[in-house]
């Protein structure tokens, strides 16, 4: 049975008909064609699917589309200001915080929320915050460096 959902995604009003079991990440990827949000596991562990729901980082693989009805969603596609990268995106590039790029959107979205919570996180606080985001390529070192630099840039 299909259900109608409406929400704001990256500032645009969107709506669609989904099954009750449709996950938010499926709605974002398959209905809206915003494929920057990724799926890397089926147990809510890897964090490749992290988006912002009403300003807070959430795993969109563990949220039903119907639960997000009426919500304000931001995905990686909505982070940059036109062609100008968000300071956190720029910091990931500058500090080589990504290799294959698959975990990257989730990492960046998670990091932006961390800085909102804690504008000046220590290395340990960054490492603790990332417990829900897996990366197989980088060994995390450059991700941590990038988030530290990104936080500084966001503070301005």
């Amino acid at each position: 049975m299909s259900v109608s959902v409406s929400m704001t995604v990256n500032g645009e009003a969107v709506s669609g008909n989904v099954e009750g079991r449709t996950l938010l990440v499926q709605f974002i990827r398959e209905h809206l064609g915003l494929t920057g949000t990724h799926v890397g596991c089926d147990t809510s562990q890897c964090g490749a699917c992290v988006v912002h729901i009403n300003g807070t980082s959430k795993k969109s693989c563990t949220t039903l589309a119907v639960q997000a009805d009426g919500a304000d969603i931001k995905t990686i596609e909505g982070l940059a200001n036109g062609d100008e990268l968000h300071p956190m995106q720029a910091a990931f590039r500058e500090h080589h915080g990504l290799q294959c790029g698959f975990c990257t959107p989730g990492m960046v979205m998670s990091a932006v929320d961390l800085v909102k919570e804690n504008p000046s996180p220590s290395e340990q606080e960054i490492r603790d915050w990332l417990e829900g985001n897996l990366c197989r390529c980088t060994g995390y070192h450059n991700i941590v460096k990038a988030i530290k630099a990104g936080a500084e840039a966001m503070r301005g």
């Binding site: 596609e77 995106q89 790029g101 990257t104």
Partner: peptide, 21 residues
């Protein structure tokens, strides 16, 4: 040199297989 690849990966514009329709 900073990577040519990064802009597309950082903005959600990578083309991974499951993204293809």
């Amino acid at each position: 040199v900073r990577r040519k690849e990064d802009y597309r990966f950082l903005t959600g514009n990578g083309h991974y297989l499951d993204d293809m329709v």
